[in-house]
Structures are given as structure tokens and as C-alpha cells.
Simulated assay, not measured.
Amino acid sequence: MTPVGGRGPAPAHRDPVRCARRLPMLGSMELRVFTEPQQGASYDQLLAVARCAEDAGYAAFFRSDHYLKMGGVSGEPGPTDAWTTLAGLARETSRIRLGTLMTAATFRLPGPLAITVAQVDAMSGGRVEFGVGTGWFEAEHQAYGIPFPPLAERFDRLEEQLAVITGLWRTPAGETFDFSGKYYTLTGSPALPKPVQSPRPPVLLGGMGAKRTPRLAARFADEFNLPFVAVDDTAAQFGRVRDACAAIGRDPAELCWSNALVLCCGRNDAEVRRRAEAIGRDPDELRENGLAGSPAEIVDTIGRYATVGSQRIYLQVLDLADLDHLDLVAAEVMPHV
């Protein structure tokens, strides 16, 4: 059946996009769109942003995995589920890659989650990327009755989830998968369905944890992402992950290195201020902590992240009704990075 809007999935033979292959040279920066729907967005709004991003030439559309607005209790019309959203977008886009920053390991069991991600990968023709983290926002767990264990246990559970999910995906067809952990046990799993991408969809991990985060990234990640982190802190954490790779004999060049930053671009100071006010932020603060200012200022900021090894920037777009914002960056920033 042709989906609404007349867009079908990409061909099933599409090769997975691997950052290390696409962006071999420092300074060749890939731009992706990153949304926070828990702040108030419907599926139709997210579809409009994803289609705009696709038409404008962005490489990917990502969304958060949250069930509660931050900074308030409403967030009308209410939360949308991350993987339900991506399943819909898989059928209503054709080129752009789709993923999460980050799926909360507290929300879902690893076996069913592996099935979900593999299914959405198939629905998209092999365009899914799987970002996953411990989960951190306690209030949303309380609001929707989701257990929220202490941080050490959340890290333990995340590590087991990664082992289970990647183990299910890599199990050869016709064989079964078993796993015995402290929190999850699988016996005789047929390890189906398989993702379209081989050997599996790219796995994204991230965060500023000094010990366990680098170790998990070295073991499991295809991409390491830092959200809302300054250039110097980015360099330090990238270094920790590279050291963790070296400790297990993995080449750090196998990983993609990325940042997520709030976007607030304008053709002039008045437009920058208008966009900052629309998301409740100060332009000077955003220039200090995000990607704010004229296209030239944003190109310069992106260049500073490139010098410490970042290869992708996720543009956190908070005003989802302002599609001209995306068009401006595509026209005036993307050609220069």
C-alpha cells in the first residue's frame, strides 16, 4: 500500500550509512535535525519537520525518547512514542535516516526493543540508527509508572541490553540466541526479525561519564555523541573514549564522533533574537552554549568542533513550526561545512 503522502520506503538493498566511510576528512561536517517532541508536538508536526529536513538535504531526522515536558507539566498535545513515530516516518519519507537521541533503556525490555528497531529498519528500507542510554529524567518515570533504579543499576541494565540487542541481531539465521545476565535472561530465542542493515543498524552511545560511558562506547558503539557540551569538554571526553578503545584493541577510527547543539540561526540580530525568544532562551547565552547567530557565526562554531574531531552535528530544533529556520541553515550553513 502506498503510504499517505505518496512516499514509500527506500529500496531494501540500500547500504547502511556509516560515518567513518562517509566523512573521512576533518572539516567535512554532516548536519542532522534533532527534535524534542515531549515539549509539545503532534505526529503531524514531526512529519512536517522530517519532510522539510529531507527536502532541504539534511542527512537525518532524530528525536528524543521522553514522555514528559521539561520545565512544565503540560506539553500539549502530549507525548508521542519515539519508535511509533519513527515507524510512521519510515513509511512517509524516502531518503533521510531516522533515529533516537537517546532511547531510554528503562522504558523497554531488550528483546522486544530489538524486534521493534529491526521492524522499523525494514519499514524504512534500512535507514534506522539506534541511540540508547540509561534514562535519566526521574519525573517522567514517576508520571507514567516506570521503575527508575539507581544510576549504577541503570548502567548495568544498559550494558546487558546492549549485549542482548546486538547479540540478537548478529545471531546467524537459523540459530538461536541465549543470554544469562543479572537482569535479563533469554533462552532459545530465534533472534528474529533481522534488521535490513548488515551487520546491524548503527548503535549510538553518548554522555560525559568518565569511566563506564567510554568503556561501553568502545565495546558497542558505532557513534559517540555528546549533547550540549563545550568544545574543550568535547575534546576531553572524545579522548577518554579513544583511550577506552585502545584498551580493548579497537581502532577509534571505526567510530563516528558527534555533538548535539541547540540551533538558533538568523539572517540578522533581530531574527536571532526572535528565534531565541520563541524558545525561551537568551541570544548571548545561546551563542555561548549552542549554535546561535548569523550563518557565518554558526559556520565558525561548527569549525571549532571539527578541530577536536567532531564529524556530525545534531541541530536541536525546538520551534517545530519554524520550517524557514531549517531552510536558512540548509542554504547558508550547509554548503560551507
Rank of each mutant, 00 (worst) to 15 (best):
G99E: 12
T100W: 08
T116V: 10
V120I: 15
R97E: 14
T100N: 12
A143R: 14
T80M: 03
G78V: 05
T84C: 14
S124F: 13
E138C: 04
D121V: 13
D121P: 11
G131Y: 04
E129K: 02
G99N: 08
A114M: 04
G78A: 03
P79F: 10
Q142A: 14
T134P: 11
G145R: 05
G88W: 03
Q142K: 15
D121W: 09
H141T: 07
G145I: 12
G126P: 08
R108V: 00
T80P: 00
E92C: 14
I96M: 07
L89W: 09
R127M: 06
R95Y: 02
T100P: 01
G145E: 10
E92V: 12
R108C: 07
I96W: 07
M102Q: 00
P77L: 08
R97N: 10
L113E: 11
T116K: 12
Y144R: 11
E92N: 11
A139T: 05
S124M: 03
R108A: 00
V117P: 04
D121L: 12
R108S: 00
P77W: 04
A139W: 05
T100G: 05
A143P: 02
T80N: 12
G99M: 11
V117E: 08
P112C: 11
E92R: 15
R127F: 08
A90L: 10
L101A: 09
A118G: 02
W136K: 00
A87E: 07
A143S: 12
Q119P: 03
T84D: 02
F107C: 02
G125P: 04
G133K: 09
L89I: 04
T106P: 01
V128R: 01
T93H: 07
R108E: 09
L98N: 05
I96C: 10
S94H: 14
L98V: 10
V128C: 06
R91C: 05
E92H: 15
T106I: 13
A82R: 01
Y144G: 02
T80K: 01
G135N: 08
H141G: 14
T84A: 15
V117W: 09
T106G: 06
T106A: 12
T93A: 06
G131V: 07
R91T: 15
E76A: 11
T134I: 13
T85K: 03
L98T: 00
G78P: 08
F130V: 02
T134F: 05
E76S: 06
M123P: 03
G145N: 11
T103V: 11
P110A: 09
Q142S: 13
A122L: 13
T116R: 14
